[in-house]
């Protein structure tokens, strides 16, 4: 078959539909699949990955619900316009940065309030003005 751009890991304990979602998101995030890119049909991807049609269907439904892909009746699915999409991806990116910031804060012994206060200062632009 070999047409598949994704790979399901049998050793991964996460459900298969989540693995599919994550990999589609990654292909999009790195720019392999630009907006408007036509995804494989549900049945073709299921055959390629050797997973149930219902599993791929579920992954596509959730991707559609999150605005990552758009499905048109009878015409398959494609990557959504970059507007909605990149916003979603950038939110995820922001969460990741905040997560690392929180980890550094903890290692410095800052309380949540202190950390939030510093972020609030940054947002207000105080940090820049002061320098």
């Amino acid at each position: 078959m070999g047409t598949t751009d994704l790979l399901i890991s049998q050793a991964d304990r996460r459900p298969m539909y989540l693995q599919i979602i994550e990999q589609v998101r990654r292909r999009i995030a790195v720019g392999d699949w630009p907006s408007g890119y036509e995804l494989p049909s549900i049945r073709a991807l299921a055959a390629g990955l050797q997973v149930s049609v219902i599993t791929v269907k579920r992954a596509y439904l959730e991707l559609e619900r999150d605005g990552v892909i758009v499905t048109r009746q009878g015409r398959g699915s494609c990557v959504a316009d970059s507007a909605g999409l990149s916003a979603g991806l950038r939110h995820a990116e922001l969460d990741q940065h905040l997560g690392s910031a929180a980890a550094v804060g903890r290692s410095l012994g800052l309380t949540a309030e202190e950390l939030v206060a510093r972020l609030r200062d940054l947002v207000a632009g105080k940090d820049e003005e002061q320098r």
Partner: peptide, 15 residues
């Protein structure tokens, strides 16, 4: 087993 499962998945490409 892998080959057989692949053929079964191929069958349902036809709805």
């Amino acid at each position: 087993r892998h080959e057989v499962l692949a053929e079964l998945m191929d069958v349902v490409q036809d709805e």
